[in-house]
Simulated assay, not measured.
Amino acid sequence: MFKYPTYRVTKFSQMLDSCPVCGQAYEPEPGFYWGAMFVSYGFSVAIFALSGVGLYYLAGDPAVWVYVLTVAVATVLTMPLVFRYSRALMLYLFGFVRYNPRWAEPAEQQPRKA
C-alpha cells in the first residue's frame, strides 16, 4: 500500500495509487481516509492507557511529568505504525477490499461462494 518503508520518517505516509499486482485502487473515493482519523484515535487511546497503566504498576506511580513524557514519547515513536495500520484497517473495514490469497489461480480453480 505504501511507497516507502516505515523507517523512512519523511516519506512513510506516501501511498501508491493502486495495487501493482491486481490494480485495486487504494483510494475508493476522494477524502476516504478522513475516517481513518477515528481508527487512529482508538489506537492512540490504547497507547495512552497502556503507557499510563504500565507506569503506574511498573514504576510505582511516578510524578505527573513522567506520565506526560512517557505518553508523548510513546505516541511519537508509534505514529508511523498507527498511521499505516489505521489506513489499512479503514480500507479493509469500510472500503470492502478483501485479500484473495488465490488471486493468481484461474477463476475455474477457485472455490465458489454459496
Results as ranks from 00 to 15, higher is better:
residue 30 P to D: 13
residue 64 V to E: 12
residue 54 G to P: 01
residue 1 M to T: 07
residue 49 A to L: 09
residue 113 K to H: 14
residue 32 F to Y: 13
residue 15 M to S: 04
residue 36 A to K: 00
residue 1 M to K: 04
residue 68 V to N: 01
residue 30 P to L: 11
residue 1 M to P: 01
residue 57 Y to E: 10
residue 89 L to M: 12
residue 88 A to G: 04
residue 9 V to E: 13
residue 77 L to E: 12
residue 37 M to T: 06
residue 28 P to W: 06
residue 52 G to D: 03
residue 39 V to Y: 07
residue 69 L to G: 02
residue 92 Y to F: 15
residue 97 V to C: 12
residue 65 W to A: 08
residue 103 W to H: 12
residue 25 A to I: 06
residue 91 L to W: 01
residue 74 A to Q: 03
residue 80 P to N: 00
residue 43 F to K: 01
residue 37 M to A: 12
residue 111 P to G: 10
residue 64 V to A: 15
residue 93 L to W: 10
residue 52 G to F: 00
residue 77 L to A: 14
residue 102 R to H: 12
residue 84 R to W: 05
residue 12 F to I: 03
residue 100 N to H: 10
residue 59 A to S: 11
residue 102 R to I: 03
residue 18 S to M: 05
residue 20 P to I: 03
residue 67 Y to P: 00
residue 33 Y to H: 01
residue 105 E to V: 06
residue 75 T to D: 12
residue 42 G to I: 03
residue 111 P to S: 09
residue 25 A to S: 12
residue 84 R to Q: 11
residue 18 S to A: 12
residue 86 S to W: 06
residue 47 I to K: 04
residue 14 Q to K: 10
residue 77 L to T: 09
residue 16 L to I: 04
residue 86 S to F: 12
residue 57 Y to M: 09
residue 113 K to T: 15
residue 43 F to Q: 00
residue 96 F to V: 14
residue 8 R to P: 00
residue 24 Q to N: 15
residue 72 A to T: 13
residue 65 W to Q: 09
residue 94 F to R: 11
residue 15 M to L: 05
residue 97 V to T: 05
residue 72 A to M: 11
residue 48 F to Y: 07
residue 23 G to E: 02
residue 43 F to N: 00
residue 84 R to A: 05
residue 60 G to R: 05
residue 85 Y to I: 14
residue 83 F to P: 00
residue 49 A to V: 10
residue 5 P to K: 05
residue 59 A to Q: 10
residue 27 E to L: 04
residue 71 V to I: 07
residue 87 R to W: 04
residue 60 G to T: 06
residue 74 A to S: 11
residue 97 V to G: 00
residue 46 A to D: 12
residue 47 I to A: 11
residue 21 V to A: 08
residue 33 Y to N: 02
residue 49 A to E: 06
residue 62 P to I: 04
residue 31 G to E: 11
residue 28 P to Y: 09
residue 83 F to A: 02
residue 20 P to V: 07
residue 68 V to H: 04
residue 92 Y to Q: 08
residue 51 S to N: 10
residue 47 I to N: 02
residue 23 G to R: 02
